[in-house]
Each structure stands twice: as structure tokens, then as C-alpha cells.
């Protein structure tokens, strides 16, 4: 079954905007922290890269499409931590 992330060949997303890139790896400090958290949690073996990808792909489609790149990472990390009992709700 194809999930929302499987966009290869889909139409309707408009042209690519190469000029929008400003060569900055992160556009806010929180993006850098999410990146580092993800790396640290993977190194600790809390989850692996495949689980992380799977979690991103399980984000509900409307949320996935509306979220920025690192928002998706954050949603996926939170999802995995909840599922593994490391992050109680609230």
C-alpha cells in the first residue's frame, strides 16, 4: 500500500524553487536540536533509521503534507518515544 510519503511521479506540487535555498542547514535552533536528538536516540539504540522513516511515513497524510521537514522529524520522534513508553502523554 502506498502511503502519503510516496510522492515520486505525483503531480500538483508545483515547480521546484532552487532560489529559495539559502545554504543554511537549519532555519531555526529547534531544527538543529531535533536533528541532534534524532541522532543521539539512534546511537543509543532507542530506535533505528528504518523505524524513524517508518514513523515519518505513518504521520497522518494531512499532517504530513502541512508539516515542514523538521516538523515531520519531530512528530516521528515523539511518536516513537510514545510507542516505546519513553514519553508518557502530557
Amino acid at each position: 500500500m502506498s502511503r502519503v510519503h510516496d510522492v515520486g511521479g505525483q503531480t500538483g506540487f508545483g515547480p521546484v524553487s532552487p532560489d529559495l535555498d539559502d545554504n543554511q542547514p537549519f532555519h531555526a535552533d529547534w531544527e538543529a536540536r531535533v536533528f541532534a536528538l534524532n541522532t543521539a536516540l539512534r546511537r543509543r539504540g532507542v530506535f533505528n533509521l528504518d523505524e524513524m522513516r517508518d514513523a515519518i511515513e505513518r504521520i497522518p497524510p494531512e499532517q504530513y503534507l502541512a508539516a515542514s521537514y523538521y516538523e515531520r522529524w519531530l512528530l516521528a520522534v515523539e511518536m516513537l518515544l510514545r510507542e516505546k513508553g519513553l514519553l508518557a502523554d502530557g
Partner: peptide
Amino acid sequence: GPSPSWYKSLAYRSRVVR
């Protein structure tokens, strides 16, 4: 290095293969 914003965009991912 870190990937450019457009590499991660839905527009690039969907269209470059089509």
C-alpha cells in the same frame, strides 16, 4: 553536507522522476 531545502521539497521529489 546538509541537503538544500529544495531537495527535501515535495515538488522536487515528485517531479524529478516524472
